[in-house]
Design a protein around this nucleic acid. Structure first.
Lengths: 195, 195
DNA sequence: GAAAGAAATGAACATTCGTTAAATTAATCG
DNA sequence: CGATTAATTTAACGAATGTTCATTTCTTTC
């Protein structure tokens, strides 16, 4: 047989993204073959090439889209004119929530950076720096306003991001603690760490 | 030719560990071939099998040895009878120092966990839990003594470990900040986050 | 200086990889 | 209904993979 009944390009394209995301997150980019992806989608490996020119492009697309979505979501979330303290609370809350609900994409996006070829890396890295910049800006403003006690906003930003993103290494849905509770605990620690 | 002048098994074994460590850290376990490792050592791929039965065993050995060394070093570092606050300071300082000086091994040890087959994973995971347990114990004691304000020692432990280990994502020797300064900044943030 | 052991080589293995090309079937549209 | 186009298959490609094995060279020991 060649083409299945009810087949539709849009559907397949979405399935490729979804299955690749899951497989890359679980086994790593290099450990996943095009045949594995195809099999998860329910198609032959060669069919993937109608949607992505290379395996590398699948990864680039996933990472780029994830970072763009993250930035867009934060842009919508942020409020101008807030105190640094309120802004940091909002950022931490947003980051935890967003990361918990997109565990696979987050995992890939900083685990598979080294699997990116130079062009793709540059794009993704730029987006990541932009997001980091949002946090740094909050911290710098807070330091200047005397609201935060921190010598090095850059180091503080790195420390906070690592701490928040780290939630994905242990959090699993259905655990003892609710998402809201975890959000609260992390926000508390973040705030205390800079005050 | 077959055997090089001055060749010595001990030397080669060490070289295999060292080069594998560097290559796995830089490109990832799956992206590194036995031929690449051999070439870095200055030997043919088949020679590696005199020292390790499989590629997987190289990874397991590296990770296991790293975790054992970490635990041994901390066991030597810790002091009984300290206040939780002093113990936490000591732990944070130790963790940063040890991780900065062994960046490659650290990177591999939590990046390549998923590349481990079940038996190796169980061993390494047990060692990791033991180390985590050290921090959890400090936090739990501090909470009980009323020295730390934290609802969930487990969450706090995860958050602190992620924060500290994250230093490896951005720290490079020869940067603007000295190792000592970074140590100090992180210790400060950690302490504040639980008080 | 010959024998025994250690250290490494070179060639080969079956398998898998990403990718391409031509052929085939299903949906769409005149 | 017939032609076109979109979606997918089957088959094949060369290259690379982890690993094995017989062989060769160097070192050590007697």
């Amino acid at each position: 047989m060649a083409r299945q009944a009810g087949a539709n390009g849009e559907t397949t394209a979405r399935a490729i993204r979804g299955e690749s995301l899951k497989l890359f997150a679980r086994h790593g980019y290099d450990a996943v073959s095009m045949r594995q992806i195809a099999s998860a989608v329910g198609v032959q490996a060669s069919a993937l090439y109608q949607y992505f020119p290379t395996k590398q492009q699948i990864l680039v697309t996933l990472m780029k889209e994830h970072m763009e979505e993250l930035l867009a979501a934060y842009t919508e979330e942020r409020r101008d004119g807030e105190t640094p303290r309120a802004a940091l609370t909002r950022f931490a809350r947003f980051h935890i929530r967003h990361h918990i609900s997109r565990a696979d994409a987050v995992f890939i996006s900083y685990m598979e950076l080294r699997a990116l070829e130079p062009e793709g890396f540059a794009v993704v890295e730029a987006l990541r720096k932009t997001y980091e910049g949002e946090l740094k800006s909050i911290l710098a403003q807070g330091a200047e306003a005397g609201e935060f006690r921190l010598e090095e906003p850059h180091v503080a930003a790195m420390a906070i991001l690592a701490m928040l993103t780290g939630v994905n290494t242990w959090y699993r849905t259905g655990g003892r603690l609710s998402r809201e509770k975890i959000e609260e605990l992390y926000v508390e620690m973040v705030l205390k760490s800079v005050i």
